[in-house]
Design a binder for these strands. Structure first.
Length: 853
RNA sequence: GGGCGGCUAGCUCAGUUGGGAGAGCGCUAGCUUGACAUGCUAGAGGUCGGCGGUUCGAGCCCGUCGCCGCCCACCA
């Protein structure tokens, strides 16, 4: 066994062996309790990043832990076609090649998409394997594979049958570059520095009277169909019911009163442009104002009745309109104005609200179902507070625009016959249900990607068919995501699950931290700030990356990428490696007996066994309580400090002497430790486990450890003996040696109290001293429990540094003043007071010994 | 505008019923100690964002202010 841990060598072969052994293959017919996770399908827009590694690690910890605790586990892999995102990626590639999708044509574009799917899909699956993700690759799904397409179409048709889908001209967020509608959640709001103009409109029938409106988009006045003021605004009460005359165009605009107007913004008068503003659309609906569509789908103005502006891009039209209005003296003010402007979150283009024919999913009933389910405790959120993100959104929800005008995505399964009858159908119909027509046009639009993602937990299991997988593994057990897609995805899965499966799609949701760059920026491929997990794995190993990610992933705030901490876990793996080397070397040829409490265990054996039980409990509680950081910390602390620093250091000489108890205990502790660590660091634990003696199955088929209460440290006597007395004495010896510049070993120690032989032996080994009953001549130095004589002349400098004594004095003073406070003694719990008294007494005697030995 | 999270050692972060401030990395000093220099040993370093309050006692509870970040939202 090499002396140095090599992550690449360790991680090279295990994944293939696990897969070959079928460890990740789920059996729907298994009689064990079931546990399932549908992996959040990564977008096939590119390779996996550290966010996916975080997400995957958390799920893999659960999947592995559940297998070891006796569950039949399905962790289902897959990818998402990510219609708009993928289309943009490919469009950018084409742009670099100097062409466009239009030049390429639909067919060639589709081929291009297919080969992209294949190559990126393979990369993603490969990355999951490198990470050690225990996914069932026999069940890999893609949101565009034929069975999934059928599920999406079925969902659409069923919504349609229920009357939850409607189509109509509505104002939507329109991306003039993607040439598609997008939903409210896909709007990326950014601050803009614009100009707020105050523009004067004449009031009809009252020569010289004007009404002054405020706007940042003067070009849209060309599509104005009204003017609005607040109903309670005294200034304008007289105007309500009159008409204003739209400059440049001459249109009559009714002046209406509507509560959506904010009286103290601008002039308190709002121009109403129902075709180009969502608020205005709603005002227009309330007052029956006509809708003028003043813009083409590519963002150029569509105002044929005013040819001077027709066909201009919005910003050019804005300049022209303002110049013309200025000539008429109608621009009363132009002030700098900072506000939020909506952008397409996929391509960054400024959105234009405009009216178009779109499909909408009615959200009222679906939201109500979800809220009712949550009120009954349908889904548990970790951390709990994130449930509000979802509840608040549902409470204020508007209908979901599900149609997109893209080249890529699930086609909307709606057909219009030659006589204009509309039908939604999973399979293209042969004959119109309403007339004899057999000629159809298919709806040209596709669905929002999230419509199909929302079906993921059951569509991957075979829905709409009643499959064994669906029956065995729905609802799933766990979902994990980052905060930013709670409403985009998690919420929509919940109402979809309730709608089609009558049960929420998962029992628990973990919202994990987002990994930022080391200087706190967002990790993004386009910014060049992304970190490829494969590079991290190459440098430190998947185990180290996973351990770090598990340690920080549950944080309530975002976490910065920190290589030094990942490297720390690589060193930890090396520590485990070498602990295993030590134990292996000490075992000898004969079989190692089991550890029994009545065997001849020495003090250190009993102590490490007690610490082990506590660690088992802490790790189990950490996983079950969604606090991986406490599980990892307990493991790290136990393995490095308790086991390696103290137990194995003390056990070394016993192992060399062939002590059966030391052999049995060190092997047992290592065995349990590797099992506890396996969900977090699967590769190195598997490797080391198989290097231990005996026939060994895979760790995943090995039972999760349980605390053995027979080894508990009842009353804390082992902790007192070992951690306070023994370790305390060893540390005192080391401190003396350091301050006196002595050799790291040597000296004679006399202990006051009667300790048994194994205590004395441990002190001799750990302190590198002889423990005697009579001290040799020489200067005696005080210990908490006795005296030590080092081989040296009289100390050249004070053996106890003044600073250390001062510190102890200060501690004692604080304890004493606390105890002198009658309020403390009277009101604090007796146990707390008693602890303080004991502490003061110990400090006092310690100081006395150090001063006047 | 509403809501949420964060502000703890030079850096990255723990700290779950309020009762002696922690880890990893970095830093200082010393060690070829027969598992490990990816190591061992001993250390330095913090008014727990500011100010008030509750309490015998506050990093933790309450109030308030200040930054940083996220989500939601129809003031054009």
């Amino acid at each position: 066994m090499p002396s140095a841990y090599d992550s690449q060598a360790v991680e090279a072969g295990w994944y293939a062996r696990w897969e070959a052994a079928g460890l990740f293959r789920a059996d729907a017919a298994s009689g064990k309790p079931h546990y399932s996770i549908a992996v959040p399908p990564p977008n096939v827009t590119g390779e996996l990043h550290l966010g996916h590694a975080t997400n995957g690690t958390i799920q893999d910890v659960w999947a592995r832990y559940r297998r070891m605790t006796g569950y039949e586990v399905l962790w289902l892999p897959g990818t998402d076609h990510a219609a708009i995102a993928t289309q943009n990626v490919i469009e950018k590639q084409l742009e670099r090649e100097g062409t466009t999708k239009e030049e390429l044509g639909r067919e060639a574009f589709a081929e291009r998409v297919e080969s992209w799917y294949a190559s990126v899909g393979d990369t993603i699956i490969g990355q999951f394997k490198q990470l050690g993700a225990s996914l069932d690759h026999s069940r890999t799904r893609f949101t565009m594979d034929p069975a999934y397409v059928r599920a999406v179409r079925t969902a659409f048709v069923r919504y349609h049958q229920r009357g939850l889908l409607y189509r109509g001209p509505r104002i939507v967020n329109w991306c003039p570059r993607c040439m598609s509608a997008i939903s409210d959640l896909e709007v990326d709001w950014q601050e803009h520095e614009d100009t707020l103009y105050q523009l004067a409109y004449d009031v009809e029938g009252e020569p010289g009277a004007e009404v002054v409106i405020a706007t940042v988009r003067p070009e849209t006045i060309l599509a104005d169909t009204g003017v609005a003021v607040h109903p309670d605004d005294e200034r304008y009460r007289a105007l309500v019911g009159r008409y204003a005359r739209l400059p440049l165009v001459g249109r009559r605009l009714p002046i209406v009163a509507d509560p959506a107007v904010t009286p103290d913004f601008g002039t308190g008068v709002l121009k109403v442009t129902p075709g180009h503003d969502i608020v205005d659309w709603e005002i227009g609906e309330r007052h029956g104002l006509p809708v003028i569509n003043g813009m083409h789908l590519d963002g150029r103005l569509n105002v044929p009745e005013t040819p001077a502006y027709d066909g201009l891009p919005a910003l050019e039209a804005r300049a022209r309109v303002i110049a013309d209005l200025e000539r008429e003296g109608r621009v009363h003010a132009a002030t700098p104005y900072r506000h939020e402007v909506g952008h397409c979150d996929r391509c960054g283009t400024v959105l234009e609200p405009l009216v178009s024919e779109q499909w909408f999913l009615r959200m009222g009933e679906l939201a109500r179902m979800s809220l009712d389910s949550s009120a009954r405790g349908g889904v548990r959120w970790h951390p709990e507070r994130h449930e509000r993100t979802y509840l608040d959104w549902l409470r204020g929800i508007r209908d979901w625009c599900v149609s997109r005008q893209l080249w890529l995505g699930h086609r909307i399964p709606v057909y219009t016959c030659a006589n204009g009858h509309l039908s939604a159908a999973v399979e293209a119909p042969a004959v119109c249900p309403e007339c004899p027509s057999n000629r159809f046009t298919e709806d040209p639009d596709v669905l929002d990607t999230w419509f199909s993602s929302a079906l993921w937990p059951f569509a991957t299991l075979g829905w709409p068919d009643d499959t064994p997988d669906l029956r065995a593994f729905y609802p799933t057990s766990l979902n994990t995501t980052a905060r930013d897609i709670i409403n985009l995805w998690v919420t929509r899965m919940i109402f979809s699950g309730l709608e089609f499966m009558e049960e929420p799609p998962f029992a628990d949701v973990i919202i994990h931290a987002t990994i930022q760059t080391s200087d706190g920026r967002r990790m993004s491929k386009s910014l060049g700030t992304g970190v490829d997990p494969r590079e991290v794995i190459a440098a430190y190993g998947a185990d180290a990356l996973r351990a770090w990610v598990a340690q920080v992933g549950m944080s309530s705030q975002d976490v910065r990428f920190d290589e030094s901490r990942i490297e720390g876990f690589k060193r930890f793996a090396n520590k485990l490696w070498n602990a295993t080397r030590l134990v292996r070397g000490g075992l000898g040829a004969e079989p190692v007996p089991r550890v029994e409490p009545d065997a001849e265990l020495e003090l250190m054996d009993r102590w490490i066994m007690a610490r082990l039980q506590a660690t088992v409990a802490a790790v189990t509680a950490g996983i079950e309580g969604y606090a991986f950081q406490s599980a990892i910390s307990a493991l790290y602390e136990f393995a490095w400090h308790d086991l390696c620093d103290w137990y194995l250091e003390a056990a070394k000489s016993r192992l060399r002497d062939g002590d059966p108890a030391a052999r049995a205990v060190s092997l047992h502790v290592l065995d349990v430790l590797l099992r506890l660590l396996h969900p977090f660091m699967p590769f190195v634990t598997e490797e080391l486990w198989h290097r231990l003696p005996g026939e060994r199955d895979f760790l995943l088929r090995t039972a999760w450890p349980e605390s053995d209460r027979r080894f508990d440290d009842a009353g804390g006597t082992l902790a007192a003996e070992v951690e306070r007395h023994l370790q305390g004495t060893v540390e005192e010896l080391r401190q003396y040696r350091k301050t006196l510049r002595l050799a790291p070993r040597g000296g004679h120690v006399l202990i006051h109290r009667a300790h048994d032989a194994s205590w004395r032996r441990a002190l001799a080994d750990l302190g590198a001293v002889e423990v005697v009953t009579e001290l040799p001549p020489g200067p005696q130095l005080g210990l908490a429990e006795g005296f030590v004589v080092f081989p040296m002349r009289a100390p050249a400098e004070p053996p106890v540094p003044a600073q250390r004594l001062a510190q102890l004095d200060a501690d004692l003073e604080r304890a004493d003043s606390k105890l002198a406070n009658p309020e403390f003694v009277a009101r604090a719990p007796a146990a707390v007071v008693e602890k303080e008294r004991a502490r003061a007494a110990e400090l006092r005697s310690r100081i006395a010994r150090m001063r006047g030995h």
